[in-house]
């Protein structure tokens, strides 16, 4: 499918805004499914945006750059994958788009490191204006970081929009059948990485049986995710009530225990 100039400009803008928002305003951070959906709407295929975005969202869970760590940029991956899925004309097969998108996400880990090094330079600019007491320019130079982020999102997206389809078509033409089939299989397995990453952040060893309970609700009771989340909420509230009321009385005892330990 051919894109018109208006669509290209909008998608490039969306891509730049998402990249800048992720670090600066954080109004819609990590909502990859949302951004993919928006791209899908602009390109006239919201369904493809939702499916690709949902897949990327599940894949990305746990991939949050906390405390300055660099995480794969799944938002960019999802938007690229959406564009490729829609423009390749066969939006029911999203596996190739996803594979390219995941490659992009990995590439962006490196770009993230470069951004943080670039910021060291921005800091030196800010500080030298502060030393010179040139406050208007100091306040302006903060936005060098925003500008860089916008470009980091917008420019690669422009390249994908202009040349992505031809590139993917060329790749598809030489790609053996086992590889496309393999990518389809991989698309089914890759969400595992998100869940596994999440489990390492959560007290899985302490509460593993609740994960089992969730699995049973889905596998044997055939409940969808929303009712399971509501059941889980009830259990969480009960847990909180039991333990926060229980804490009140023995808290004094615990404090004494702590004191004794310190004395030793």
């Amino acid at each position: 499918m051919e894109l018109n100039a208006f669509q290209i400009i909008l998608v490039v803008l969306l891509s730049g805004l998402r990249a800048a928002d992720m670090y600066s305003t954080q109004a819609l951070p990590f909502m990859h499914a949302l951004w993919c959906w928006l791209v899908g709407i602009v390109l006239g295929d919201p369904m493809a945006g939702l499916v690709v975005g949902g897949t990327i969202q599940l894949m990305s869970m746990g991939a949050v750059g906390i405390g300055g760590a660099s995480a794969p940029d799944y938002g960019m991956a999802g938007m690229v994958a959406t564009v490729l899925a829609v423009t390749s004309g066969n939006s029911s097969d999203i596996s190739v788009g996803l594979a390219v998108g995941v490659a992009v996400a990995m590439l962006y880990v490196q770009l993230d490191v470069i951004f943080k090094i670039y910021n060291s330079w921005v800091f030196s600019v800010i500080r030298s204006f502060a030393v010179k007491r040139d406050y208007p320019n100091m306040l302006r130079s903060f936005f060098l970081s925003h500008l860089y982020l916008f470009m980091q999102g917008a420019l690669p997206m422009l390249l994908v929009l202009l040349f992505g389809r031809q590139a993917v078509d060329a790749v598809l033409a030489v790609m053996p059948a086992w590889f496309t089939a393999g990518l389809n299989v991989a698309a089914g397995i890759l969400p595992v990485t998100g869940f596994a990453m999440l489990l390492t952040f959560m007290p899985f060893n302490k509460f593993w049986y609740f994960a089992v309970a969730g699995f049973v609700c889905a596998a044997y009771l055939n409940l969808s995710v929303l009712p399971i989340a509501l059941i889980a909420m009830v259990i969480a509230i009960c847990y909180f009530k039991i333990h926060s009321e229980g804490v009140a009385a023995p808290a004094a005892g615990a404090l004494v225990d702590g004191g004794e330990l310190e004395d030793e």
């Binding site: 309970a213 969730g214 049973v216 609700c217 399971i228 989340a229």
Partner: peptide, 11 residues
Amino acid sequence: ILGLMVVGSLI
């Protein structure tokens, strides 16, 4: 607990 149950079902 809430999070783990949801993750368990999604797996």
